[in-house]
Design a protein around this nucleic acid. Structure first.
Lengths: 253, 253
DNA sequence: TAGTGGTCTAGACCACTGA
DNA sequence: CAGTGGTCTAGACCACTAG
């Protein structure tokens, strides 16, 4: 006889825990509410703290929880929609773009970037740092690589450095006619500097959006933007994007 | 005197480990090559296995490594670009679309989906399962929700169920005029069924692409596609997307 | 059956936050 | 300062794969 092996796959504890916690989050907690600490939770569920943490990590990855060292674990609000695909035919730095220039430097790009720019590894590029804030919270950090040849009329006198310099570079960029752009999204982990700017720990999961701006038949600028994966839902297209939420989440009073 | 506190931040071991391994991957390993097993690696670096694993997990998240239980850890090839934004004005199931229908069911949608469809929670919808293969490897699993009202002329005789039924539903859908679509991308973790189809463990990181198809002034269909985050780079736009790779990766002989 | 990665434990100490 | 999450250890056993 065929031994039916009913449920021969023992579900891992952390997976089951995650399910239980997820349901509790929907039914018994409000956004912003603080969960019991990890040691208490682990004891309550009769598992080691490491196991409990494995479940919490997954829930944080899914944007359901927010954990902060020294503070505690709180129920996260639904992810915010962040528009990425709008201004389909606008340069970075165009009016009403969501980014804020931080500073600017002229340096040789990383080898990988030089390749994508199809420029010599030694040719210096302007590296503009920008940051993006949404709902009062930093959501993304960007590095914009602009070959010097893309902004030939830029004068050194325009501004020596800093945010003013960055704006000058972007202003010069507007003079080119944008012929198109293409974009890629992939998963990454935050470098130390990005993590700091995003108010996360190094290694935090981020969505890396790479955009290539085409003008005069070549790549005139390259943007590498890292978005917080835990709090952001990237939206493309005109109207703002779909929202699929998890269940009945109430708002904290 | 101001105690300068040079390097007062002790870099976590796993972070340093990750950096070392990442450089070794660039310089000393070829794509497809098998790394030493975790116990040996941990011993070699003088850390506990759990710490070593923390580093490996990050590298896998970044698409640098691929680990398979019972087999070992191998150097992953660069992520493959997967076009998502093409056929900007085409219905799912249009000719030459990258998806393959698997089956189809008529059922009440999850509450969250019903909300997004702006349809009653009780109104049944066609749920089409599709899968997407690229370079001989499964890269995405999709659930397509199509309200029965979007395909009014569908006859029960067309096909009872299965892939043929799915194709019949999609064929009916083509009759509507597509007025637009909007799309969102966010990080998620694979449900058990998706994980199986993607040949990954449950909980594996995925990029969830939610697309809403608009016709007749309402949402005529909703697609929720989950892409393997470790192997895929989602590309939007016309030309195929930018590739930023990590360093000199050689090909295994 | 041997060897791999996946899960789990019960501790310890550290870095950070806020009162 | 007490309490939080973050890191780390040294084990153990399990599930899976392939020879």
């Amino acid at each position: 006889m065929g031994t039916t092996q009913l449920e021969s796959v023992p579900e891992p504890k952390y997976w089951h825990l995650k399910t239980v916690l997820s349901e509790a989050l929907d039914s018994e907690f409000s956004v912003g509410e603080i969960l019991p600490n990890e040691r208490d939770l682990a004891a309550r569920f009769g598992v080691a703290r490491a196991t409990l943490r494995q479940a919490l990590e997954q829930l944080e990855l899914e944007g359901r929880l927010q954990r902060r060292r020294g503070v505690g674990t709180t129920v996260a609000p639904p992810r915010m929609g962040v528009a990425v695909g709008t201004d389909q035919d606008a340069w970075p730095g165009a009016p009403d773009d969501a980014w804020q220039s931080v500073d600017c430097a002229l340096a040789a790009p990383p080898a990988a970037v030089a390749t994508a720019l199809e420029t010599g590894a030694d040719e210096p590029v302007h590296i503009v740092r920008r940051s993006r804030v949404s709902h009062g919270q930093p959501v993304a950090a960007e590095l914009l690589y602009i070959p010097a040849s893309s902004v030939p009329d830029l004068t050194a006198i325009d501004a020596p450095s800093g945010a003013a310099r960055a704006r000058a570079v972007l202003r010069e960029l507007q003079r080119l006619e944008l012929e198109g752009q293409d974009r890629a999204v992939e998963l990454g982990s935050a470098r130390a500097d990005d993590a700091k700017e995003l108010d996360r720990l190094p290694g935090a999961p981020v969505l890396v959006v790479t955009t290539r701006f085409l003008a005069e038949g070549r790549t005139a600028a390259l943007s590498v933007a890292t978005y917080r994966a835990d709090t952001c839902r990237l939206t493309f297209g005109d109207t703002g994007g779909v929202e699929i939420h998890h269940g009945p989440e109430r708002q904290a009073s």
